[in-house]
């Protein structure tokens, strides 16, 4: 039996559930491969929490995924009404706090307070929620440093790929420019418009029907999500930008007419995020890309980014999001934190 790592999942929506499922299916394998036994000891959503200090077994984790939204408080006999981190922490003494609450870019809440709380209680943090990092990157990282805990956030940018870990590890490089397609939802919508020749609103409807776009898709289509990712990247590269400094164009103003005109001239229309590292400038803009170029061929829910440094150019292509892919990135972070601890 491996070393136990006790994990709390705060936020139990699509990523939280996918993570519970992936842990249920892979914890035995991870244990036999790496000697790390991941025990989920508590789960919370906006209405309630479920906790079990010994850790939920595989069956219970899968069963948890059957509760309706905001239904963790129905998970008998482990359920509590309302969320109280004090209760969760005192009863379970978690090693890792996983923050999967919605990204909210005005106050960063509830993610920001939750992460600070976790750090103060001496838990390592893994977050897929971008907002706390976007608003208070420095504060969070230095607080973690001073308390001797670490924070990982591989799921926040190109969550289906190891983009963040690669970028973080390119320590000897001078990264000059980062550019690409960073938002799966808007890329899907634009792809639909090109392939089916439909207007933006119909493509959006389709994305919502397939569960790719949220009921309120503003963060994705107006470029806020992509800008947030650029802010996180800028912090990793120690050239921090504020999200307000990034100029954004919304894909909602792209019409079918624009698409047809672009295609006639041999272009496709994409939403491109770019960060000129030296110049300290970034934007999310609607761009006409020649059809033969790489970014023109990244379609649907795929994302792609190019990192250019003084030494090399690297390209990442992969799923930007999706519950299962994101969950794997979160799990990778949990496993690597546990490694570093031993």
């Amino acid at each position: 039996m491996g070393r136990r790592v006790k994990v709390l999942l705060i936020g139990f929506g699509s990523v939280g559930r996918a993570l519970a499922k992936v842990i249920a299916l892979k914890r035995k394998i991870i244990n036999s491969r790496y000697g790390i036994l991941i025990d989920v000891v508590g789960v919370a959503d906006s209405k309630g929490m479920a906790l079990k200090a010994e850790g939920f077994d595989e069956y219970e984790l899968l069963k948890l995924c059957e509760v309706p939204r905001s239904g963790v408080n129905l998970f008998k006999p482990y359920a509590h009404q309302g969320v109280d981190l004090n209760i969760l922490y005192s009863n379970t003494q978690p090693d890792v706090h996983v923050e999967l609450t919605p990204s909210e870019y005005t106050s960063g809440e509830p993610g920001l307070s939750n992460i600070m709380y976790a750090i103060d209680r001496g838990a390592h943090v893994v977050t897929a929620n971008k907002a706390p990092l976007v608003l208070k990157y420095k504060e969070i990282v230095s607080r973690a440093l001073s308390r001797g805990v670490r924070i990982k956030f591989r799921a926040t940018v190109l969550g289906g790929t190891p983009f963040i870990s690669t970028l973080t590890s390119m320590r000897s490089h001078d990264v000059e420019r980062i550019e690409g397609i960073l938002n799966a939802t808007s890329n899907f919508i634009l792809t639909e418009m090109h392939e089916k020749l439909v207007e933006f609103t119909d493509a959006l409807k389709m994305a919502q029907a397939l569960g790719i776009a949220e009921a309120d898709p503003t963060l994705d289509i107006d470029g806020v999500d992509a800008a947030a990712k650029i802010v996180i990247i800028s912090n990793i590269l120690e050239r921090p930008l504020k999200i307000e400094e990034i100029n954004r164009e919304s894909i909602s103003r792209v019409s079918l007419r624009d698409i047809i005109d672009a295609v006639r001239q041999g272009y496709v229309i994409k939403s491109i995020a770019s960060f000129d590292v030296r110049g300290g400038k970034a934007s999310i803009r609607i761009a006409k890309i020649p059809r033969s170029e790489l970014f023109a061929q990244i379609n649907g829910v795929m994302n792609g980014v190019r990192i250019r440094s003084d030494a090399t150019e690297v390209v990442f292509i992969g799923r930007g999001g999706g519950g299962i892919e994101t969950a794997h990135s979160v799990l990778d972070d949990i496993v690597s934190l546990s490694f570093e601890d031993s």
Binding site: K196, V198, D202, K205, M206, Q208, A209, L210
Partner: peptide, 11 residues
């Protein structure tokens, strides 16, 4: 959505 998009097989 299906009524708007016509025949989309995956939908």
């Amino acid at each position: 959505a299906i009524n708007r998009s016509g025949v989309d097989l995956s939908l």
